[in-house]
Structure formats: C-alpha cells, structure tokens
Nucleic acid binder design. Structure first.
Lengths: 129, 129
DNA sequence: AATGGTAATAGGACCCATTACTGATAATCG
DNA sequence: CGATTATCAGTAATGGGTCCTATTACCATT
C-alpha cells in the first residue's frame, strides 16, 4: 500500500520533534488544532497509530483506564506516571534488567512486558503535596 | 458510614472464594446472574469497588484498554496477560524483587508499581498457535 | 493540464468499560 | 414496630477510542 505524505501527518510528526513530554492523543490534537483548526480527532488517532506501526514513535499503553501516551524515544524503556499531574516521564532503568530474574518453567511464553511506576514527580512534590 | 450485609454483596464474595481465574467485572456479572438474574451491572461494579477498598480483593488495572481484572489473592504480586485468550495468571516472581535495582537520584517518588507480562499461556500454546 | 485510481481526510456515529443519577427496597438501630 | 439510610435495579451519561461515509488530496499517466 502506497504511503502518501500529507500536511496532517507531517504536522503531527513535527509536534513530536524534540518533544519529550509523552503527550496523549488529546494533547496532540489540541496542539495540532493551533496550526490546523479543522484537523479531526480521527485523523490524529489514525496517524498516531500509523506512526507507531511504522516505528517512528512508541505507544505507552494506559494502565487503569486513562489515555495512552506517546513517546518519541523509540528504544524500549520504562516509564513513571505521576498520579497528581498525570504526566509520564522516562525511567533510566535498563530494559530487560529484571527479566533475567524470571523463574524458569513458567507456564507462560513471555513476548513483551510493561513496567510502570506510580508516584509523584519532582515538580509536583515541589509544589507541596 | 454503616456497612450493611446484603445478598448481592455476599454472592459476589462467594464467587471469589477459591476462584483463582482473575475474573473481569463482566465475568462476575454473568456468574452472579446465574444465581440472581436481576442483579444489575452497577451493583457488581459498586461492590467490586467496595471489596477492593476494604482489601478483600485486588484490582488488576487493565493495560491498554481492556477491562480490569480482580484477584482473590490480596498480597501484591505480578501478573501475565495472555493476548490470545485474554486471561490473567499469577507470576511467581517476588514482588519488589527488582525495585532494589532502581537507580538512586530519580526525580520521582515511587509509591507503587505495576508489572505485566504479555504473551501466550500454556493452554493457548498447546491449542496450537 | 486533465484524468483515473486510491490514500487520507473531516465529521460524526458508534463501542466498550465504567460511573453517576434516580426512585425503590430493605437492613439495621432505637 | 417504625424511621433512617445504605444499598439496590435500571438507565442515562461519560471517556477513550474505533469505525463508517462522503469528500478531498495526492500522484502517476497520458
């Protein structure tokens, strides 16, 4: 299937360049609307899925109902979720670090895994609990 | 606030006794309806929340859109999610095992964490991919 | 430059899991 | 027993996301 370059797709790509804030689909939608007020939510979702498929960005699946986040850093790594501001940040813990600790003889074939820390980020802590 | 004992709450409690299948709210709803056909979804959700609050069961938050699962085993532990049948099983990896590996000087105060393995469970593997 | 084929779009309907609201029912206390 | 009010059944509403339909935009070819 031929892949076309469109203004909307390129806009979304640009919104990610140098953006390490792990935005949600809705945040991307709001940013995109500032430059293209008629862009639709469907287009944002479709292109985020496309960019994840093509390996340009990473999806950080929600844990427990909230929205998914997206990440320009495509090498797999872990994330921390601030339960006060809802923002997601990177955790400099080597991926697969603990997987070697997995017991053998598990009745389960592991393909991937997801680790998420929950707590309070620096800036929320500083603002006073 | 006074806590009352009701048939619906006790029924849901009973459905968990000896049930290590990590059911979803909907699975509990279907089981409950076999004994009490007029029980409502709202009641199931309300009581699952109640039982989680009171520490009688554990909520396993969904990762990536699916429904939450619930667990009679209340001591924290890890889970594996079969992406074929959707069932959740326990992983005998000591909780907090890897947390000691966390780098110090993180700009984040960790309160809890969630680890989920994704892959294929034994019975789905046996059924042939 | 116009054309055909088809990818991608805007906008909205729809889906799923869950929560919130609204009387009605019933468990507990006095 | 009767009053209080937690809990209930039933339904509407919510939030995040997908899917559908008509329309538009891209691009290779004449």
């Amino acid at each position: 299937m031929e892949v076309r370059s469109t203004a909307q797709r390129d806009l979304i790509r640009r919104l990610f360049r140098g953006n390490y804030t792990h935005p949600t689909a809705d945040e991307i939608y709001e940013l995109a609307r500032r430059e293209n007020p008629t862009i639709s939510r469907g287009t944002v979702y479709r292109n985020l899925n496309f960019l994840v498929e093509s390996g340009e960005i990473l999806r950080i699946p929600s844990v427990g109902g909230g929205p998914d986040h997206f990440d320009v850093t495509t090498s797999p790594h872990y994330h921390a979720h601030c339960r006060l501001c809802g923002r997601v940040s990177d955790v400099p813990l080597p991926y697969n670090a603990w997987l070697s600790a997995l017991p053998h003889g598990l009745d389960f074939t592991v393909e991937t895994h997801q680790l998420m820390l929950f707590g309070t980020c620096k800036s929320c802590t500083n603002k006073g609990d």
